[in-house]
Amino acid sequence: MPDDTLGRPFGVPARREPVLPNGVLGMLIFVATEVMFFSGLISAFVIGKSNALGGWPPPGQPRLPVEETAFNTAALLASGVALYFANRAFKNGTPNTKRLLLLSIALGGFFVLFQGAEWVALIGEGLTLTSGQLGGFFYLLVGTHALHVVVGFIILLYTYRRLSRGDLDGFAFWPAQIFWYFVVGVWPILYWQVYL
């Protein structure tokens, strides 16, 4: 392209190709805000822990199920990996996409149900929102994350419906994936902070 002395092309300027599609960029910005939201929650939890006079976890409170949740963490991570391979299959146009996406959704659903069962057990042991700092922060952090998992689950179901109707394109699939990777990626940090 010929440039003039001012470094600008003659004639009609070329249309630029956006570096990122609108949906992807919008979702990335949204996820950045979510990262800050969870950073705020984790910071609050760190400060809450530091205030505990009798050490953390507070004595006399139910223990959190560390091993069971480790298993559940693995399930959620596997869901993220399945989605990654679903995307690879989608790009290559192989028919595996549907199966992998379904696997990812199923593992996400399993995570929520498992956590629900865990909550029922913990409430039975006397750990509630108002039972103390441990209960408050536990349900706040894990509950907020669970809410995000449910939202991501619905988004993935919607993606699956569009895929099975055959009108899924990358512009809808990428943002959904970004959100799910965020939900999957933030969980190990929460697990490390809250359970360990």
């Binding site: 910005i29 950045a32 805000t33 979510e34 990262v35 800050m36 939201f37 969870f38 950073s39 705020g40 929650l41 910071s43 609050a44 706040l140 907020t144």
Partner: peptide, 14 residues
């Protein structure tokens, strides 16, 4: 705004 509002929303939820 986007980068700073998250912690406040976290605090507001609490």
């Amino acid at each position: 705004f986007m980068a700073s509002v998250g912690p406040l929303i976290a605090g507001a939820v609490m």
